[in-house]
Amino acid sequence: MALQITQSCVNCWACVDVCPNDAIYADKPHFLIDDMKCTECLGDHATPQCAAICPIEMAIVDELGEFLNPPGSLTGIPIEKLKEFGLYREVA
């Protein structure tokens, strides 16, 4: 089991600094998670740390492709507004 980073990532390093497994590394066009190292923070923290600090919605998904921070969940911007501004996606 491992989380993944999507194209929404802005490469801000926040997740790299808080990952207890050093599983996240800089890459182009965006950061990536080493799925051999990622434990989804089980045993270390109540919630995966990358998803707990990530400022960008839709940037982190689980193995099923579900967003850990779905559209609107961090900013509180209503879904209709996100759609109007082209900031909404159903899937990663």
Binding site: V10, C12, W13, A14, V16, I53, P55, I56, L74, T75
Partner: peptide, 14 residues
Amino acid sequence: APACNIQCNYCNRK
């Protein structure tokens, strides 16, 4: 210093 630990409503990290 790219990382941040809060969100402000006047900021967009993208």
